[in-house]
Structures are given as C-alpha cells and as structure tokens.
Simulated assay, not measured.
Amino acid sequence: MASGGRWRSRSALRSLFLLVTLVLNIKLMLFIFGPEEPAVPPRNLTVLIWHWPFYRPLDLTGDVCADLYNIKRCHLTADREKYNFSDVVVFHHVELVKEGQVVATMARPPGQKWVWATLESPSNIRGVSKWNNIFNWTLSYREDADIFVPYGRMVPRSSPNTYNFNRTGMAAWVVSHYKKTQERAQFVHELSSHLNVDIYGRANRRPLCPTCLIPTVSHYFFYLALENSVHRDYITEKLWQNSFTAGAVPVVLGPPRENYERFVPSDSFIHISDFPSPKDLTKFLLTMAPQRYRQFFRWREELEVKLYTDWRERFCMICTKYTSLQQNKVYTDLEGWFNKSDQQQ
C-alpha cells in the first residue's frame, strides 16, 4: 500500500509538472505573439490626445477602442476641456517641441499620468532633455518602453497561406528622404554597381502613390528594407509593410541581426552584415537556387503580419497596459533613457 501510494504520488507530481509546463509554454507563446484579446482595464479610462501626431486628426466617433480594436473600457478624446477628467494625457514629441512651453507649466490633476510618445529614432528627434521630470510613461517602438508599440508584429496565421513566386524584377528600394551621406545611400550606390536595383521615390523622380507601393514591390524578388538610422528596435514599416506585406524578401540594414530575430524568424530576412561587402551579397542573391529562395517564406505557413498604422490603436493600447505600469514612475532623464538603452544593443 505504501509503495502504491508513493507511485500514485509520483504520478500525480509528474502530471502536475506536465500541466505547469504546458501552461508556461502557452504563456510564452502569448508573450511572443500577443494575447488573442487585449487586456480589459478594471474601470473606464479616459485618454486625452493633447496633440494629434503631425496635426492629422482622426475620427473618434463612437467607442473607437472597442469597436475597432476590441479594447474595452477605454475612451479616447481630443477635447482639451476634458483635461481635468482624463486619466492619461498623451503628448506626441513633434508637436510638443513646437508648442511645449505651455505644457511645461500646466497643473496636473492628482493621479493623472502623462505619456511621451514617439515612433522616431534618436537620430531623427531633438529636444528630448527639455522634458525630464515631467513624463510618467513612454510610448515607443522600443521594446523597453512602458507602452511598446512596434510598427508590426508576427501573429498566428488566421487563414490558409497562398503565395505566388512569379517575379519580374530583382530588387527594389523606395526612399522618401534621401541623403548621400546616409549609410543606406552609400550601400545602395555600391550595390547598384553589381545588381540591378530599381529605386522609387521623390528623390529619384519615380514617386509612388500610397496605394501603388505594395503592388509595385510585389513584382520583385527582394526589397531593400534600409532604415534611415541604426538604433535598437528601430525596425519600421520598411520591413513590416514594404517587404512582408508586399511579399518580397527583405534585405535589411538596421540594428544587429539578433535584434531583428527578437521579433521575426531568422530565415525571414537577409541582413547585410551577413556578407563582407555588397558585391558578396549580390553574388548570393544572383546565384540563389529557387529552393533556397522559398525557404524565406516558410514562416508564412504558421504566421502572418499585423501592422500598426493607426494612431488610435496605439493610444488605445495605453489602456491595456495601464494597471501593469508603475504608478509612481517619473522619467528624471528622458533623453538618457532614450539614448542609453540604444547603446546597449
């Protein structure tokens, strides 16, 4: 009896261990790919948008967060008359620089939290240090931000994958802000001496309308997803939309490969650092066998891309994080945070 009891006890422990392991694995997958449904705040929260990013207002009619993004108990408003009744006020950095003097002297209602928002890299913004000791939370593409809002992410596939490998062009690059001194410009200049690269954008007098970009890139085998600056986690629509959505294999210039691999499968892209020179990269691209090329699409069998393009969704996400954030937090050195972590790639 004692021996049988011990056996049943060990069996029960093994079953419990397997159950705990299963739960932890499920939680890990949810952490990587995100929950099926956003977290629900314990009460109704009001988020005041002090400035619409780039002065481009969006429609807030109805229950936007719930109706569009299934984020409940979260109310967005751009009505500054509701300032004293708002739980959170979010400020976008570009407009803050232009009109921030008034903001710096505003009295804050007890318990109200201020969020500093930007999707730009440290190379593309200035004046961050002016906002030390003011903001409680950050909203950024950076994974260590309080409200992490990437340009896109991988999610489990919701429908069967169908893909057409027919292509007519080798490589394309779409660039809106071109500077010869940029690393990406120098890279393309050298690459173009070995590989036919079709360049689109205002700088090259081949502009694309907003709805033309994806159909155009979809005719190419490769897309040059070259970031305008190299910073930790700064992986923009150039990868998520211009490459993945269009169906071209991205050739990336940005943070190190291991940083990309935190967000996308290692065999979903080509990193320029994998090759000693643009000439060596060209040789790899031109001699790639069809079977090898198809391997860059294996991730599509189980995953698909979710894009974050609506500022309303980004602001609604503040509510999903609200209860898990440090309520007494204040960024005493906002610029230091924005730059220091970047140096720790």
Rank of each mutant, 00 (worst) to 15 (best):
C65W: 05
S159N: 13
R108G: 04
H194E: 02
D342N: 15
C316K: 10
H93E: 14
G100R: 10
L18G: 04
V64A: 04
R8A: 15
L325I: 10
K279R: 14
G127Y: 09
W52K: 07
N136F: 07
P109S: 08
F296C: 12
H177I: 01
I214M: 02
Y69P: 00
H194F: 14
K238A: 00
W131H: 02
F338Q: 01
T245Q: 14
F284Q: 11
K179D: 12
L191G: 03
L45H: 12
V264E: 03
D144S: 13
N166H: 15
Q326T: 11
S324W: 01
V23F: 13
K27D: 07
L191W: 06
H189M: 15
V64K: 04
A225M: 03
M288F: 06
L139Y: 00
A248F: 06
H189F: 14
V155A: 08
W311I: 10
G100E: 11
A145N: 03
R73F: 09
G336V: 08
V20G: 04
E301Q: 15
A248E: 02
E301C: 05
I147V: 15
R294L: 14
L13S: 07
R56Q: 12
K130G: 00
V128G: 10
T216H: 07
Q295I: 03
K72I: 02
V251Q: 00
L68H: 08
F91R: 02
S324N: 11
L325F: 05
T21A: 15
G111A: 13
D79T: 06
R43C: 08
L30I: 11
L22S: 13
Y69Q: 04
A248R: 03
Y260Q: 12
V94S: 11
K113P: 05
E143A: 14
P150I: 09
K179F: 14
V47Q: 04
T323P: 00
S192R: 13
P265C: 12
F275A: 02
K98G: 00
